[in-house]
Design a protein around this nucleic acid. Sequence first.
RNA 1: GGCCCCGUGGUGUAACGGUUAGCACGCCAGGUUUUCAACCUGGUAGCGCGGGUUCGACUCCCGCCGGGGCUACCA
Length: 478
Amino acid sequence: MPRCTAFSRPPAVETWAPISTVTSMRFRFAPSPTGVLHIGGARTALYNWLASRGEKGELVLRLEDTDPERSTEENVASILEALEWLELDWDIGPLRQKEREDRHRECVQQMLESDLAYRDPASAEEVASWKKENGNRGYRGKGADDPSAAVRLRVPDEGETVVRDEIHGDVSFPNSAIDDFVIARSDGSPLYNLAVAIDDLDMEITDVVRGDDHLSNTPKQILVMEALGTTPPRYAHLPLLHGPDGKKLSKRHGADSVQALRDSGYLPEAVRNYIALLGWGTEDDETLLTTEDLIARFRIDRVGKAAAIFDEQKLRWMNGRYMRGLPVDDYTARVAAFIDREVDDRLRDACEMAQEKAQTLAEVWPLIGYLFEEPELDEKAWRKVMKEGSADLLESSHSALADLEGFGVPEVEKALEQVVVDSGAKPGAVYQPVRVALTGGSVSPGIFETVSALGQEQTLSRIEAAIDRCRSEQGATG
RNA sequence: GGCCCCGUGGUGUAACGGUUAGCACGCCAGGUUUUCAACCUGGUAGCGCGGGUUCGACUCCCGCCGGGGCUACCA
């Protein structure tokens, strides 16, 4: 059996570690730049990252860009940006598969010369009809002396190819059902199943961790490796991620890309924690796990087999937990970056006040914006809150607050509580109108904090404006 | 159609040949003499179906049903 002896030579990319230094496990994350990094891809990246850190191994980042039609530089940049935001790094790369085309062509040539592969001009239609006539068996071409024909690998008719999978166990595929698949196009350019096999071999990848959608491709890659006289790495095929409708995650599922998650105000550490739990869980059911915990506890062989549905509600909850656990300065810095504002004491105080309320960075500004600009009135909230006696209660609140010397939370609290006592109204009947008057909406931080933070002057003038509006509305309708 | 994978509450998961099938999100109901998306307490809800194996099956085997992937000179 002829071998592709060139495998023993160090790959021609300087960022690679010398093969002699490979002592432990080497993982790889190999996204195709044919689109942005979506949640499923992010999880695959995370699992590879966790495993490579946990096992004291290495991680290779490789861009599978052998499809010139669909691969773009924009996608490459987007994927890199997504990984950076997720704070996932790698040891080797980013490598580009396209740059290794010579190597791939060289292997094809060798396989051709040793008759492990052959040229076949058959079109897709011809292959289809062949299969139809042959009871759906794997396609076997006759081979032709046509230098411009695509190259197919010779797949044996007998036996089976077994994928040894860390998650699924052994999965076997009858060779007779596998087509003599194309490994190089008519123009000689290498195809995915060939390039992946050669690169995983050359880069001495010990563990291939990727999505379940590749499980059916794996025997083909193993066949390539066997044709080249080498043994395949270990595999682990992750169950796919589905959208809320149970279908494969796609664009229409909303927050599907990493950037969309970022722009929705989620924290990278929360996203990591959340997606780590999609398909994997600990023995003791811990839910909130720091990245250190994840690295220490993640086990690829404990990953489940069933597809999981991405549930944004749980991510929101988890994100809120992380938000509330942040030191105020850190919290403020993240909010500032998110809303594109400078950090200052005012913002810091506002953030501190809002911290226990917001679940995402995007929810912070709506809670504190009234401190920085005239709020926009939420008509619905106004109608819900402003009842018949509201104007009078607002006036009571106004005078109680106007009399105040200090305007700290304790003073405000005491004053407004007195209004409640004196009026005999329910607390909500007193506080909600004030809240709407000040913030425009019915949701804000605690009412005393909300009032105190705005300051006496602004508070009084906004309450006055609200009273005016109440009166005029009553006049108009009554 | 062919090959392959998967199937614990609405969602993510845990455990296990013998448990009242656990945890978390959600949801519902209270509580927080201030809204609420935060917080606290309680509650609701599950082993897809049918056969086996077994003293005993969610757990092992088979069939079915359901979902998914691959089946490109895409990755």
